[in-house]
Simulated assay, not measured.
Amino acid sequence: MATDTSTYKLNHTMIRVKDPKKSLEFYGFLGLSQINKLDFEEAKFSLYFLAYNGPNSLSGERHWTDRNGVLELTHNYGTENDPNYTVANGNTEPHRGFGHIAISVDNIELACKRLEDAGFPFQKKLTEGRMRHIAFVKDPDGYWVELIRRTDESVAAGVTSTDPKSYRLNHTMLRVKDAEVSLRFYQETMGMELVKESQNESAKFNLYFLGYPGSNPPVKKDASNPVAEWEGLLELTWNYGTEKQEGRVYHDGNSEPQGFGHICISVDDLDAACARFESLNVTWKKRLTDGRMKNVAFILDPDGYWIEVIQNETLKSRSKW
């Protein structure tokens, strides 16, 4: 058996939510559709899988495991009625780690106005701060959702409306302690390609964008953001000097207080992929053979973030979900 990392997809990002009705309304307003739901009645939780779907989307009508850029909402029963339940959004000390998801939009001015008019709160409006080309809206649990441009301003100038169904779930941002170590892991072990990087020496941080080119559009090398049309990118944020700190620097989202859960890679052959990961001496959170669920595995990255590994059901049938 062999596995080909070029067929892998950064399938989804999981976040825990307090009230699925409110979260589904918010993300639905951003154009995302529910493409699957899994209920685990005995364990008292449900999983909602959201994505950009249909003719104006990048993935069309593909099976949920055969996509980049899916958002998984995890709801533990009863949290919606618990006045003390809150999530850690990953951006407040001392529990920083996960930063945000980012959506690329056709017209960022109109997209932001539409959200403001609907009454959704912003962490940063387009007109605030030094960076006037991005905004951050907050979802019902306080997670940050970055809004970026899909096209350069000169191209978007002729756009007089915004169509949420044409948006892209572009990337997920994680803070990392040691950029060199994390880049090596995601490129050599997970098979991702580094497709964009930027340095901000005055603010003392670098950004690295990695992904699987497979079903994504060609990189637009002459564009200000050459991968704005993509879905399923991983943005690693490295703040200078953290690599010199002792021990764990960032919160993984799965130890208390919980919030972000994991990113997930879908693969061509789950058994072969896990055998390859085993040969590379990855740190396992859960092997395929562990526990009751024999169709998922979890790897820990260098910062302790969880990476779920599942079968791409279009390439090889394994699970009926």
Rank of each mutant, 00 (worst) to 15 (best):
F185R: 05
F185I: 11
Y186L: 06
E188M: 12
T189V: 15
M190G: 05
M190P: 14
M190I: 15
M190D: 10
M190V: 15
G191C: 09
M192E: 06
M192T: 13
E193G: 03
V195N: 05
K196R: 13
K196D: 09
S198K: 14
Q199S: 12
Q199G: 00
N200M: 10
E201C: 00
E201W: 04
A203I: 00
A203Q: 13
K204L: 15
K204C: 12
K204I: 10
F205E: 02
N206F: 11
N206C: 12
L207C: 05
Y208G: 05
F209T: 02
F209L: 07
L210M: 14
L210E: 03
L210N: 10
L210S: 12
G211C: 02
G211I: 06
Y212Q: 04
S215V: 04
S215Q: 10
S215H: 11
S215A: 08
P218K: 07
P218I: 08
V219T: 14
V219C: 05
D222L: 06
D222S: 14
A223C: 07
A223I: 11
S224K: 15
N225T: 01
P226F: 05
P226R: 01
V227C: 12
V227E: 04
A228F: 06
A228K: 01
E229Y: 01
E229W: 00
E229R: 00
E229V: 00
W230Y: 12
